[in-house]
């Protein structure tokens, strides 16, 4: 098997300190390989979002080591200074609430990610358009987010997450706002991406109807990975 795209060794996260300290995650080991879609399950407050934020370099770990795409980015401290650049190039985020920029049209919302990566305007628009077509929301390109349905907005957000062809995709309850038909469609899409782009995909979900669609699942409880079975 190829080298893991995401590798966590002994990662821990404690919010706050002293009396108020919350041990959101303790000694977590995790590996996700290219082409894998991994489900992240667990009750509310078990540390799922925290885990995604750590992998996305949004939250600094308290301890441990994090490797992304073969590069050690955290080992007791950040080893890269431009974490935003890292996110731009390697990581795509899909949120529960779509988080589109309200003042940009669907197409511009996707193009902005390309624009930030230095893709020239016309090319960025062309690619944005192609991605929206691929996700079957091309006909809504010129629409502002406030006029999109939940499913449409979520697909635009997915298009944006995919714009720079990231190898790591982190999705926090991507199907929570969708009906089961749409949810299945999004999961099919993620699966296709994992295969076509050899991406590593981590999906946080409470949605039992999609549990069967993962290559593997990781269950968290009180900040610890519980063995499957």
């Amino acid at each position: 098997m190829a080298a893991p795209l995401v590798e966590l060794r002994g990662i821990a996260k404690t919010y706050g300190r002293g009396e108020a300290a919350v041990h959101a995650l303790t000694d977590t080991d995790l590996q996700v390989y290219p082409g894998q879609v991994v489900g992240l399950l667990g009750p509310s407050g078990s540390g799922k979002t925290t885990l995604l934020n750590l992998i996305g370099c949004i939250v600094e770990p308290t301890r441990g080591r994090l490797d992304l795409d073969g590069e050690t980015v955290y080992d007791g401290r950040w080893l890269r200074s431009d974490l935003r650049r890292l996110r731009l190039e390697k990581i795509g985020f899909i949120f529960q609430f779509h988080n589109l920029l309200p003042f940009l049209t669907a197409e511009e919302n996707v193009a902005v990610a390309l624009d930030l990566a230095g893709v020239p305007g016309a090319e960025a628009r062309r690619r944005a358009r192609a991605l929206l077509d691929y996700l079957e929301v091309g006909h809504r390109s010129a629409t502002l987010p406030s006029r999109l349905s939940g499913g449409e907005a979520q697909r635009v957000a997915i298009a944006r997450a995919l714009a720079n062809r990231p190898r790591i995709i982190l999705a926090d309850e991507p199907t929570a706002a969708l009906d089961s038909g749409r949810a299945a469609m999004v999961m099919d899409l993620l699966r296709r991406l994992a295969i076509e782009q050899q991406a590593a995909i981590l999906v946080v979900t409470h949605d039992e109807t999609i549990f069967g669609r993962f290559d593997g699942t990781v269950t968290l409880r009180d900040g610890r990975v519980v063995p499957n079975g």
Binding site: G56, I58, R84, R85, L86, R87, L88, E89, F93, N99, L100, L101, P102, F103, V112, A113, L116, A117, R160
Partner: peptide
Amino acid sequence: VKAIATLKLIGAPDRT
């Protein structure tokens, strides 16, 4: 604020 957080999340530099 939310839009700015999103921009930062998808990798926008401070200068943007």
